[in-house]
Design a protein around this nucleic acid. Structure first.
Lengths: 344, 344
DNA sequence: CTGAAAGCGCTAACAT
DNA sequence: ATGTTAGCGCTTTCAG
């Protein structure tokens, strides 16, 4: 059963293939009567344009690459939806790939994106300084990074105000009476982790609190990473009375560690985390910096589509506002209430 | 910067485009010396074949569709990796889509797969009886279902022995002394949920235990669904002493519900779940039926690739073995030990 | 406003 | 064993 081609439609409608093409692509110079005939014929034959042929001819694909550092993380899943929705609203489809925070995998997928001549790529880079995007550059394939930035090239990005958000969260802990605040921080070579750590330090400095380096423990962006770092932090003799965890999966691990140690929030330690963890289901009411994940994906894709359309503008770093949701895990001061604070 | 075409390579190598094509596609009838020249020219020019042109000519794409019912579920994430690995090992790429258990979305993605002329589709169907695959059939695009089967058409599938696994798990609960066993079951119109429920009933019947319909509570395959069903089940006056939860996210919800009710495993109720939940991080040692998710994906893809290659064989329902991992949450009988039992 | 014709990059018949 | 040619389905000049 051969496919229905534009010639078949043309034959049925009694016009030339060129006219069919014009009608289907919304060229308005076609007589209304003819256009109707063409549309009728197309729908009668259940005609489906062949994308491959079209993009061979027009030298432009309608596929975006979405390269994510950890697809298991629900933050990226919401984000991916934002990308998909924005893309499909404009007739683009999305190929999803997962790098597992692995630089080699990332490199492979970037090569593939270039080889497949994708129209553009949305990337959450595995590293800030070692991610290489030459393959894309060579083919002039536009790129937008999300959640994180890279320092190896000037590239559009969409992130939240990580530094300010972290500062706000830690300042809140200080206001709740914490004087010795630990941070479970992410990998060194990731911009969001750097910014969140910087925000933590800003808050301590502003309050004139100590910045004991032992209060900073790093780990992978995983449950295990958060658990291990928290255990290191909370097993010390002079235990922190406040804890800021810079990632959602790590926050889950931190909760596990506290449970293991028999410590309670907020009595033993006031806790603030980063990113939503409502998917968890059984988490206590946690104070969290919440990111507009879906919006990040949507915004990044719209930016990318403008680049693809040939729009020329300076490199943009779009910064969306996060929100500090204050809940019970951090409330130790008398009279404090749960609240929701947009940051900046 | 125009793209390097096969003609450019031919010109540099001093041969015809056809020869270049032959060399690059491994046609052995080309003289070794010429072949070397061609390869040298190709690599010197950094030539990348244009997939679109190739598949326009050969009328065959190398893209598989992977349509998943819930991408947030880590079970499907592992599975997706199995699909990706098997596909890329054979030079196919994978487009991932997420239906959220929504029949309309599923239908849309199936249409897209057909419109894009994908080489084949791997699908975890949202329903057993209402999922329609005509769009694929019309274009003779092969399909393999995973995790679940459909009853609307004869289609290859790869699942685990859900019924036997559920029976084994529930029999284990009975052996541990449970006499009133509840089940948190999945949606009615999903084959795996049906099979797991049937296995539960098999076990009760074999042991001569009551099958009170109130002991079966259904819910969505979500944390909330499992929580609500468990609350309904455990709030009754004659509370079950054993609980079988037919899905991983639901198991998380069940744990949340038990915590809310102040009930402990295995003292108040012996618990067995389905699917791994190690990603959770803070779960107690749980008795679980574990599925080879990665293998399911790999196997399904290999089957699909055989169909794509034109292999003719009867419709296959591949059934992989699950494993019952017995851990503390179900151990109430004196002298019982954690064990690992392959099923069947 | 519409049609004829060329060609995107590739491969497969057909020649040689 | 290699080259020549045609054409996959589509869009886009260029004529009319």
């Amino acid at each position: 059963m051969p496919q229905v081609t534009i010639r078949d439609v043309a034959a049925v409608a009694g016009v030339s293939p060129a006219t069919v093409s014009r009608v289907l692509n919304g060229d308005s110079r076609v007589a209304a009567a003819l256009a109707d005939q063409v549309r009728a014929a197309a729908s009668r034959l259940d005609y489906r344009p062949n994308h491959q042929a079209r993009s061979l001819r027009t030298q432009a694909t309608t596929v975006l690459g979405l390269i994510i550092s950890d697809i298991q993380n629900p933050f990226f899943t919401s984000l991916a939806r934002g990308v998909e929705d924005a893309a499909s609203a404009r007739g683009f489809s999305v190929i999803l790939a997962n790098t597992d925070e692995d630089l080699d995998k990332e490199q492979r997928y970037l090569q593939i994106a270039a080889a497949e001549r994708m129209a553009g790529v949305v990337l959450s880079p595995a590293t800030a300084t070692r991610t290489r995007i030459d393959a894309l550059d060579n083919q002039h394939i536009p790129l937008v990074t999300i959640d994180r930035r890279i320092r190896t090239a000037a590239v559009d990005s969409v992130t939240v105000n990580n530094r300010e958000a972290a500062e706000t969260a830690v300042t809140h802990l200080i206001e709740q009476g914490c004087r010795r605040i630990g941070i479970v921080a992410g990998r060194e070579d990731v911009s969001s982790a750097q910014d969140r750590l910087a925000g933590y330090q800003d808050a301590l400095r502003a309050a004139g609190l100590e910045t004991d380096p032992e209060l900073c423990q790093r780990g992978e962006f995983r449950v295990e990473g958060g658990r291990d770092a928290t255990l290191r932090l909370m097993s010390r003799t002079s235990r922190p009375d406040g804890l800021f965890v810079a990632n959602n999966l790590m926050t889950v691990g931190a909760l596990a560690a506290l449970t293991e140690l028999g410590l309670y929030c907020p009595d033993d330690v006031a806790l603030a985390g980063f990113d939503d963890i409502s998917w968890l289901g059984l988490a206590p009411p946690l104070t969290l910096v919440e990111q507009p994940a879906y919006e990040i994906g949507r915004t990044a894709t719209e930016l990318l589509l403008r680049r693809i359309a040939g729009d020329e503008f300076d490199v943009q770093d779009v910064v969306l506002p996060a929100t500090l949701q204050i809940r019970r895990s951090s409330l130790r001061a008398a009279g404090s209430e749960p609240t929701s604070t947009p940051i900046r």
